[in-house]
Design a protein around this nucleic acid. Structure first.
Lengths: 126, 126
DNA sequence: CGGCATCCCGTCTGATACTG
DNA sequence: CAGTATCAGACGGGATGCCG
């Protein structure tokens, strides 16, 4: 699909369903979790440690949403102590390249954006 | 920069500054406005009409943030009636490819995600 | 025309405590 | 270990009205 057709579709359906999906993807933790899961199957606690700042609650909720949307698979092993592994589905893996593209853009432009914000704050003190 | 280095950086700085920027980009309207501005300079009212569902308030706020971050330029023409045009800066234009990549992914996977949600709801009725 | 100010509500998020 | 439950605060976002 061409770039032009993409822009058409973005504005085509009034962005309703598209934005609904994008809202799900672009929340506080989703992209970070997806990228973290790129390494393979990861246990709940490991995820919790590899994503500093996330609360147990938000990790659970975000994983549930990702599972519901078919981007992440959840596998519980009936052992003691319990073990649950999360992994990307093929759909979830297909999100990696665009996610990295966006993350890469952000990383490359963080300095410029920060500088711009500084300048803006200096221009309008309050 | 390689893909590997990107993933490292994403997890490297604990995602703090990165997530801060990503949060700004991935809110409800930013990507849609940026893509809409890809056509060139657009007036406030035109933008308001081309992005159905957005309120005047959110259009203003989002444009201010984009201006503060140096992604969008705001040009006011001292005329009567007043005319204000918004356009992408070079930094803003550099966001277009990643934004389209993500939007393209969303468009391609909307059906699958919707289906997955349906199945999920059927599996867990309440 | 292109805003800004105000009010208000629903959602998101974090902290804490408890459970199979 | 891997969650769930509950509460409270922050925040996003819509509606409305006023202004240069």
């Amino acid at each position: 699909m061409s770039e032009y057709q993409h822009t058409c579709m973005i504005r085509g359906d009034n962005g309703q369903t598209l934005r609904a999906i994008l809202d799900q993807i672009c929340n506080k933790w989703t992209l970070l979790i997806v990228v973290t899961l790129d390494q393979g199957a990861v246990r709940f606690t490991d995820l919790h440690q590899q994503i500093p700042g996330i609360s147990q609650r938000m990790l659970t909720l975000t994983l549930r949403n990702l599972e519901r949307d078919g981007l992440v698979s959840r596998t519980a092993y009936p052992e003691a102590p319990p073990r649950v592994e999360y992994a990307l589905t093929p759909t979830g893996q297909s999100l990696i390249p665009p996610a990295l593209a966006l993350a890469g853009w952000a990383i490359e432009h963080v300095p410029g954006i920060e500088a711009s914000r500084e300048a803006y704050r200096a221009r309008i003190p309050r």
